[in-house]
Amino acid sequence: MTNEPKSIDLLRFENVTAGYGKRPIVTGVSFSIARGEFLGIVGPNGSGKTTLLRTLLGILHPKEGRIEFPSTHPDVPVMGYVPQRDTIDLLLPFTTAEVVMMGRYRRIGLGRRAQQKDMQAIDCALEQVGMESFSGKQFRDLSGGQKQRTLIARALASEPEILILDEPTNGMDIASRQTLLELIQSLHASGALTVVMVSHLLGDVANCAQRIALIDGGHFTVGASAEILNETNLSQIYGTPIAVTILNGKTIISAGGPNARH
């Protein structure tokens, strides 16, 4: 018997086909995510980003191929999921702390009540996202950016190995968007947290992620940001001229091509 070192790959997709019912949406997906990595998933609307995300989260089963978790085998790593905030029903008056507490439910156990350590965990998660002074406020009364921070705190409260964010900056003003992206980057940098972020906002992903996965027409490509998010690739996929500019170290992606800037 050999003592093989544990792989640093947190998860590995091997030739996965994902979809609904009998309909495949994305096919032949093969990639791996290393521990501590930041992967961005981009693609036009309807390209299958959410389908792939739901498969990664275990909500959908792969139609073909397999998903492995080499570093935690046979267990699935704890995933902290941050859904789009408009998918949350606001009818019930949950407080911010109660929403974050939901992230502890798995650790608390079936039919059990929260303990002191769970209370400390939610205080800590709220502090990490700068929402500690909002713990008693109703979630439905928070602004879009505050709601998103609360949902990130809920994911952090589950003590995840991988943080998965679905369109986290959707519908936010420019200042809230920037603050949120900085928060996500600092969480990734400080805690060796593996992050997967899905977004249709190419600039957001280009400036945060170490690697980019691009989905288009059911096909899937993974690589470094510069390799994937170049003008030729993007113009072809989106069917319109797209300009990629580097300004003060930031990638700016705009529709209209180089001529549109003049």
């Binding site: 909500i59 859904p83 998918t87 939901m102 439910y105 608390i108």
Partner: peptide, 19 residues
């Protein structure tokens, strides 16, 4: 007994599934 589970699944079934 299962109040928190029923509430979580009613409030946000997708995240509950991932948990």
């Amino acid at each position: 007994f299962f109040r928190k589970e029923f509430l979580f699944v009613s409030y946000d079934p997708e995240t509950a599934q991932t948990q």
